[in-house]
Simulated assay, not measured.
Amino acid sequence: MQSSELQRITNWLIDGARSSGTPAEMIADVCEHLVDAGLPLWRFGIFIRTLHPEIFGRNFIWRQGEEVEVGTVDFEILDTPEFAASPLRIVFEQGIEVRGRIGDPDNKRFPILDDLRAEGATDYIAVPMPFLDGSVHATSWVTRHPGGFTDDHIAAIRSIVTPLARVSEIISLRRTAEMLLDTYVGNRAGARILGGQIRRGHNDTMQAAIWLSDLRGFTALSDRLPAETVVEILNHYFDCQVTAIRGHGGEVLKFMGDGLLAVFPIDEYVGDAAHVCTRVLEAARESRASVEALAFPVGEAVERFRFGVALHVGNILYGNIGGGNRLDFTCIGPAVNLAARLEKITGRLGRTVVASEGFANVCRHDWRELGEFPIAGFSKAQRVYGLGEETPVVMA
Rank of each mutant, 00 (worst) to 15 (best):
M26E: 02
M26L: 12
C31E: 07
E32M: 08
H33L: 10
L34F: 06
V35P: 04
V35C: 09
G38E: 08
G38M: 08
G38D: 07
G38W: 09
P40V: 03
L41F: 11
W42N: 14
R43T: 11
F44Y: 13
I46G: 09
F47S: 11
I48T: 10
R49A: 11
R49G: 15
R49Q: 15
T50H: 00
T50I: 07
I55S: 05
I55Q: 09
I55R: 08
F56W: 14
F56S: 15
G57H: 08
R58S: 14
N59E: 11
F60I: 04
I61K: 06
W62R: 06
W62M: 07
R63N: 14
R63L: 13
Q64L: 02
E66F: 14
E66C: 12
E66Q: 15
E67G: 04
E67R: 05
V68T: 13
V68P: 14
T72A: 13
F75V: 09
F75M: 11
F75S: 10
L78F: 14
D79T: 12
D79Y: 10
F83P: 02
F83I: 00
A84F: 11
P87V: 03
P87I: 01
L88K: 03
L88N: 11
L88P: 03
V91R: 01
G95M: 02
I96A: 04
V98T: 10
R99C: 10
I102R: 00
G103E: 06
P105N: 05
K108R: 15
R109C: 13
F110I: 10
I112V: 15
L113S: 13
D115L: 12
D115K: 10
D115F: 06
L116K: 07
R117M: 15
R117G: 15
A118I: 09
A118D: 15
E119S: 12
A121T: 11
D123R: 01
Y124K: 05
I125W: 06
P128K: 06
M129F: 06
M129N: 04
F131Q: 09
F131N: 06
D133R: 00
D133E: 03
G134K: 02
S135K: 07
V136L: 09
V136H: 05
A138L: 03
A138V: 02
T139H: 09
T139C: 15
S140H: 03
S140F: 01
W141A: 05
V142G: 01
V142W: 00
V142A: 03
V142K: 00
T143V: 12
T143A: 11
P146C: 00
G147N: 07
G148I: 08
F149Y: 13
T150M: 01
D151H: 05
I154R: 06
I154M: 10
I154G: 06
A155Q: 13
A155F: 09
I157Q: 03
I157M: 08
I157G: 03
I157C: 05
